[in-house]
């Protein structure tokens, strides 16, 4: 079953077409990779899916629902969570509070509820705490729950972003270069973590530069360049694709 479908999505920034009529679909329960050379438009695709930028044209369907034009907060409420290439945490909040922010879509207490503080509000607060702790536990950060987010190491900050995204029980998790800046050991752990996330039944769609990692864990790979899809398929198919090899390894042949 298809969870996410992009149909002919296009984005112009001024005169520049960053994303040019991309068609793509992510199957439920898979790990799907989006790769391409630097500046090919991968992150823009993520920003369009999550509603950070409005589309110029095209449609996005998620779980059978047309979410084209939804603002970012509404996309999240529908069950789509993401992380960023450049880590985006609430730095002055604790690790636990960061994770608690991920439960927004499962809960509803607002300003009035906070003032009146009926029993259900207290129960909901406990529920948020529980979900957040579980997510932290899952990525292995429950030991630092009370630390300020800005004080934990870089690798942990990346994991915290994942935990925050997981705390809201998303159906689709978008990871934007989760391994950037990680060493080999950390990358291996991350790969194991992504596999465990899939086992929980969460579909993973990721942008990554670390080819080894992409080829190893993704079932499907889409390759884009200059904002257009230039290849799609299983890892082995993509690796054998002439277009893809050209995009990665050379411009045109120049003699030595």
């Amino acid at each position: 079953m298809t969870l996410l479908t992009l149909q002919q999505i296009t984005k112009n920034f001024g005169g520049l077409t960053a994303v040019d009529h991309i068609d793509l679909s992510v199957e439920k329960g898979t790990i799907h990779g989006l790769i391409g050379p630097n500046g090919s438009g991968k992150t823009t695709v993520f920003n369009l899916i999550t509603g950070i930028y409005p589309l110029t044209s095209g449609t996005i369907t998620f779980n059978g629902m047309d979410i084209t034009g939804y603002p970012a907060f509404k996309v999240n409420q529908k069950g789509l969570a993401r992380t960023f290439q450049e880590i985006q945490l609430f730095y002055d909040m604790t690790v636990l509070e960061n994770a608690m922010m991920g439960c927004q879509r499962l809960t509803r207490a607002g300003a009035v509820a906070a003032l009146v503080k009926l029993p259900w509000v207290t129960r909901e607060e406990a529920f948020i705490r529980e979900k957040a702790m579980a997510a932290l536990d899952f990525v292995g950060l429950s030991g630092t729950a009370e630390e300020a987010a800005r004080k934990i190491p870089y690798g942990h900050q990346r994991l915290l972003e994942v935990a925050r995204a997981l705390a809201g029980d998303p159906e689709l998790l978008l990871l934007d270069e989760p391994a950037a800046g990680m060493n080999h050991a950390e990358t291996r752990e991350l790969m194991a973590l992504i596999a465990r996330i899939r086992e929980m039944g969460i579909t993973v769609f990721l942008v990554e530069h670390n080819m080894k990692m992409v080829m190893e864990i993704c079932e499907w790979i889409t390759v884009i360049n200059y904002g257009q899809v230039i290849g799609h398929g299983k890892p082995a198919q993509v690796q054998a694709d002439e277009n893809v090899i050209n995009a990665y390894l050379s411009g045109e042949n120049i003699t030595c």
Partner: peptide, 10 residues
């Protein structure tokens, strides 16, 4: 360069 073939050929 990321385009290693271009870079290495020259």
């Amino acid at each position: 360069e990321q385009n290693s073939e271009l870079a290495l050929t020259i």
